[in-house]
Write a protein that binds this DNA or RNA. Structure first.
Ligand SMILES: [Mn+2]
Ligand SMILES: [Mn+2]
Ligand SMILES: [Mn+2]
Ligand SMILES: [Mn+2]
Lengths: 220, 220
DNA sequence: ACAATTTTTTAGATTTGTCTAAAATTATAT
DNA sequence: ATATAATTTTAGACAAATCTAAAAAATTGT
């Protein structure tokens, strides 16, 4: 698999991660920052290799084979992110671009030993789950703060908007991955939410609440 | 710089590391496992970018700019090798192929933090020196066992032949990087050398002696 | 229903890195 | 010195990944 093929496979995976429908050519082009015609060319190649299901004008979806390829790249990406944060002291808003390169290094031994070195982590620095060798991962029961009722509590495990701007905003407001929050009050007027933290309670805007994931403890 | 350009620059560096003359097209082709015509094409591109000095039919040599590029890639290669051995418990005969990929990851912050994480190592697992950010490295005063007189002693810091076969042979014979050896006797008949080790004295063949470097302590 | 718009695909070029076959140049041997 | 051999370069082709412009198909609005 070439680096480019891997990035396309990963893009298709992420675009169909939640809705599960087939993915549009234009959507892939936008994600990959390329032109729709280039996407069509690549889709044909991936279809040729049985990595995607493709019918002209009908969009594309990953085959089972393609899904496993996607998960192995995501596994590598997220393990490298853990390494960068835990071992090299990167902050969690800096790691994505570097992991984007490291995910393409080809060595099974390397990724096994890296996994062991990191203590077999289950989530990456953004709270996203790390698939195992066979592409299996515990579907996280994380929910956006804005989706939760008063009284809910859980660990902050991830962000929806992973832009550097948002991640920096969180750092500035002393909101860090792993912190436990409890929802104290939801303001109907503007959707802002009061949450309790270790250092007291703070009020966050609706926009923040729709971009922060909590892993809920009292949910099966 | 593309991955391919970087590998060519590194190949030219290594081929002119000791003799300092210009490097032949065929030599590069052999090193890069490609055809001479491909080498000529690449040389033209590198010359265009002022990374090499090139006159048709006269071979090629690195410009100062090219030399610095080579050293920055070698720095990355060797730091990654240290990481793989020290942190991930690879053995020293396994790391080269993986480092060959990792050396192309582009991130100044990454390599700085990796360097710090490793404790600013001066040599890689094969005893080869690691250039600093500016391409400066302490020229090692290492010599082959076969070049040393009786009575010399020093730490084993590297190998000439870095083939997996040779490195495995060393492991089997309990010869490891960092071990201190003293030359007890040189057999004129076959060039074999008797050396003292922690666990007693052993005799090594001339072929071994011409492939093991010692860092001599009593030399300035 | 069907014209207008949007999406997707095709056709034809371009860049990068490679190849084979042939020509040009340099080195070697008698 | 000059024929022979080896090395190096050129010419022309190809696969991968991209692009622009144009054609084809699907979607949308009235
Ligand atoms: Mn990537
Ligand atoms: Mn992540
Ligand atoms: Mn390389
Ligand atoms: Mn090395």
């Amino acid at each position: 698999m070439t680096l480019s093929e891997e990035d396309y496979i990963k893009a298709i995976y992420h675009l169909s991660e939640f809705n599960s429908k087939s993915v549009a050519t234009n959507a892939i082009a936008e994600q990959m920052k390329t032109k729709p015609s280039s996407v069509t060319d690549m889709i044909k190649k991936l279809a040729e290799k049985s990595l995607v299901n493709y019918k002209k004008y009908q969009g594309v979806s990953l085959s089972e084979k393609g899904r496993l390829v996607a998960l192995s790249i995501i596994r590598k990406h997220r393990l490298w992110e853990v390494f960068l944060v835990d071992k090299l002291n990167f902050s969690w808003d800096e790691v994505h671009v570097v992991a984007e390169q490291l995910e393409h290094i080809k060595s099974d031994a390397l990724i096994d030993k890296l996994d062991a070195h990191l203590g077999f982590p289950k989530v990456d620095p953004h709270g996203d789950p790390i698939p195992n060798k066979d592409g299996v991962f515990t579907k996280s029961v994380k929910k956006l703060i804005s989706e939760l009722p008063v009284g809910s509590q859980g660990a902050c495990v991830g962000v929806n908007d992973s832009s550097a701007a948002f991640l920096k905003f969180l750092d500035k407001n002393k909101i860090a991955l792993g912190d436990t929050f409890k929802i104290l009050e939801i303001e109907e007027f503007d959707g802002s939410v009061t949450i309790s933290t270790r250092s007291g309670s703070i009020r966050i805007s609706k926009q923040i609440a729709t971009n922060l994931f909590l892993e809920i403890v009292d949910e099966e």
